[in-house]
Design a binder for these strands. Structure first.
Lengths: 246, 246
DNA sequence: GCGTCCACTTGACTTGGATCAATGCCGCCG
DNA sequence: CGGCGGCATTGATCCAAGTCAAGTGGACGC
């Protein structure tokens, strides 16, 4: 993206990790250092509420959160699952268009919003990195539209498990996995339903079906072991051409 | 977003229109001028194919296009409707993740990809504008997920008509409309179905239903007149709080 | 160790939208 | 002007997922 490769790493904080490079002045680094602060919150904490002001731009360092919208009659749709390296908020807008809720204990790397806007404006590496991240999120959101609009319940569940497996692995630095993979479900069946546009009962039935078909094991409520990655990818309508399912 | 307001306008081309400002050097302007070229193609032209290289970054100046993915079994989902000011392609990636097809005669303002990447890198205003546009598209894509995941066929159609009405008006510089509005449908029933995750028959039935309920008129196959904007917004689950339906 | 609670699972039935099958309508071309 | 072809509408039926209603089972407190 830029002429500089990221060099200086900083734990799981993607802003500093990806946006600062050794060739650039130390000023940028110290500016980011001064502006950022870490915060850890327990499971269930609302990190943002739709329409309400958001004082910080944050990047998720640890844990898992869900971005969702709830209609007046109670129907809820999760529009994004946030895992480490994903961000909350945006420069140039004071309010969040969605609710964001911590699905587990969550650690955030936070930047006060106006300070962050200044950083984005003055630091081409950060702006460039943020653009790349946003474009990637956009592609992922559009991929997910295919799942929501055109897939059966079984395909939706398979796509979800594969997506989760890939993202959990990629955080740990692994490429496309294969064979048996233990996937940690950081959410209840209800939240899975909200993510996939299904009811809790349908989620439950499809988990049972995939289990009976030998594609997955369910060691506990919050874990699913994928027994045959490629077979599950086939169920998800992924023809194996590497097209990412979100 | 930036310290500079856009001043120089250029027809419907959003890059130059929004990204260049009178306070900045003339160099930026002439660089963009040299790099860009216009191209007009007839209805049905493929503007991009999923997985295949994309030589240009383009912005849509006139007409309408659909971004879609087709599964192997023929199921298709439109993941984005492109209207004037929307863009095709992205810096930093040579291939398109989706098919893009012209739904009408389309005029593009095109920048050769590597030249555009240089412009984005060297011109903070363009980069900043592109980031804002991408963040807006991301919000819109996530809003659409609520429609696809949680709405009934009737609600989906209502949301679609409202969305189209708003976007067609906003191009012409109007805010949220009300009363009777003629919406031009730049697509077949099949393409509407692909956009909403419904079949052609369901689209047809729901149009008939909304017409019989006095919410819309159907003067021709490619036009729908909204008779009561607020009532239609109610059908779409829009509580009128101004929350955009995509 | 025993009850209680709550999330999950399973079963029975309903229903919204898909599917299959005509039929209608309009534009176009000879 | 008349026939042809493709899109759109309408009707009849089917089925996947939703809804409503019991169970189950593991975690936790007492």
């Amino acid at each position: 993206m830029t002429a500089h490769d990221p060099v200086i790493a900083c734990g799981n904080c993607p802003i500093r990790h990806n946006a600062i490079c050794a060739e650039c002045e130390a000023d940028e680094l110290s500016m980011l250092e001064r502006a950022k602060s870490y915060k850890t919150v327990p499971v269930g904490t609302p990190l943002a509420r739709a329409g309400e002001p958001l004082s910080h731009f944050s990047s998720l360092v640890k844990g898992c959160a869900a971005m969702s919208r709830t209609l007046e009659d109670g129907r809820r749709q999760t529009v994004g699952l946030l895992l480490p390296s994903d961000f909350i908020g945006r420069p140039g807008r004071a309010t969040s268009p969605f609710d964001v809720t911590a699905l587990s204990e969550v650690t955030l790397c936070r930047f006060e919003r106006t300070a962050f806007e200044r950083i984005v404006r003055d630091t081409p590496h950060v702006a460039s990195r943020l653009l790349t991240m946003t474009l990637d999120e956009l592609d992922a959101a559009r991929d997910w539209a295919v799942v929501l609009g055109r897939m059966t319940a079984r395909e939706k569940l398979a796509a979800f498990l594969l997506n989760l497996a890939q993202r959990q692995r990629s955080v740990r630095g692994m490429a496309r996995p294969s064979g048996k993979i233990l996937v940690a479900l950081p959410m209840s069946r209800e939240q899975m339903g909200d993510h996939l546009g299904l009811t809790i009962e349908t989620i439950s039935r499809q988990i049972t079906a995939l289990r009976k078909d030998g594609l997955i094991e369910v060691p506990s409520r919050q874990d699913i072991r994928i027994l045959d990655y490629d077979a599950l990818a086939f169920e998800a309508g992924d023809d194996g051409d590497g097209a990412p399912i979100a």
